[in-house]
Simulated assay, not measured.
Amino acid sequence: MATLFLVIIYLAFISLGLPDSLLGAAWPVMRMDYGAPIETAGMLYMIIAGGTIVSSLASGTVLKRFGTGKVTFVSCVLTAGALFGFSIAPSLIWLFLCAIPLGLGAGAVDAGLNNYVATHYKAHHMSWLHCFWGVGATIGPMIMSFYISRGQSWRDGYTTIFIIQLALVVLLFCTLPLWKRVSPESRDERTDDGGDTDPEGANEQKARTNPLKIKGVKLTLTSFLLYCGVESTVGLWGGSFLVNTKQLTAATAAQWVSLYYAGITVGRLITGFVTFKVSNRVLIRAGQMIALAGTVLLVLPLPTSFSLVGFIMIGLGCAPIYPCLLHETPTRFGKEQSTGIMGYQMAVAYTGSTFLPPLLGWVIGYSTTGVLPYFVITYIVLMFIGSEQVNRLMKAH
Rank of each mutant, 00 (worst) to 15 (best):
G340P: 00
Q247W: 09
L166W: 08
T175F: 08
T209M: 09
F5V: 02
S21I: 00
F355D: 05
G195F: 08
I14Y: 02
I270A: 14
T329Y: 02
R181A: 12
A111E: 00
L176S: 06
L219T: 05
G107K: 02
I161N: 04
P101Q: 13
N114V: 06
D33Y: 11
G81N: 13
C228P: 01
L356Q: 10
F173R: 10
L44S: 05
E231A: 07
A286M: 13
T160H: 11
T191R: 15
G287F: 00
V381M: 09
D192Q: 07
R208T: 11
L212I: 11
F276R: 15
A251R: 11
L269S: 07
R155T: 08
N391P: 00
L92M: 14
L236Q: 12
H397M: 14
L298Q: 10
L171H: 09
Q247H: 15
L221K: 02
N114W: 01
T331E: 06
K213M: 08
G195K: 13
R268C: 02
L360I: 11
A291P: 01
D33R: 04
F13L: 10
W256Q: 12
I314D: 00
E200Q: 13
W94E: 08
T160C: 08
L292Q: 08
Q205M: 13
T197M: 10
